[in-house]
Amino acid sequence: MKSILKARWISSFVFLLLLFLITGIVDPTFLTYSSIISCFNNATMYTLLAIGIAFVIMTGEIDVSIGSTLGLAAAMTGLIAKAGGGIPRMIVTVLLIGALIGFVNGLGVAWFGVPSLIFTLGTNGVVRGLIYIVSDGRTVENFTGGGLGSFSNQVLFAEITVYYAITLLVFIAAHLIVTRTKKGKYFIAVGDNPNGANLVGISVFRTKLVAYVLCGAFAGIAGFVFASKYGQVMISAGNGYEMTAIAACVLGGISLSGGLGNMVGAALGAVIMASISRLLVYIGLPSTYDNTITGVMLIVIVVIDALAQRRSIEMARRKRLLSRTARQTEEGASKA
């Protein structure tokens, strides 16, 4: 079981390496430390989103409202910056917004039992509307004067930006929580078998609620990063990001039916999703190939994964059958 889990994220790691290598072969100038690191730096936002939604996907649910949560958090960040508020205030605000939206999602899905896709679709619309209300229907802009904009490009060490360094820390924490702590393992347990989890005394409701709150909070922080990176927040900000985040998780080997995968996969998937357009430039293809390649990649990976899984199930069944018949013939021989 453990080896399967390992193999799932390792395949996406190998895939990322291959992507880098192929790009490097086509254009050797890519294979420098700084251009590879910048791929990671650019993935900050997607990494945050992917880690957040990974909690939810592990429990077997989905959250399509994170795109607009990101937009709302970004708009609030911009408005606070315009009003002269400090960065701590922004971070507290985006965390609260995200967690609150996540809480509502969690209540709807886990308490009332509404299918998660439907419920988060609804909250997605509501939150998108809230962006319109808080920003008065206008693009929030001209707010990066107070250090917020310059902060986004600040390098901490070895060309790693402050944001990515923080994201890395958060990622490590999330990974340790999910793999090492007892409560963290609940996410996988609930996704794998909710009834079984319930029987051994895990609160499915609480676990899913926590997953949604975390997911929302991560999307909120991603919104803060968005605002500081782009310096302007349109009403449609973050539209479609939820699909990219889900795709990142899928690439990273997290099963959408829950109970499988880990944070390493989510983070690697996010880097892959964020780097594709960049790598295409090095390979010499126009960025119009972006979606095509993403789509092909996604489908190929999941189809191979599904076929491999089916094969392993088939093999296991055959093995079981063989051992059973072997035992039966043995018994038959001893009786005779």
Partner: peptide, 11 residues
């Protein structure tokens, strides 16, 4: 699959 398809066909 349809998520991949949405990327692929729009691409």
């Amino acid at each position: 699959v349809t998520l991949g398809g949405s990327f692929l066909y729009s691409g």
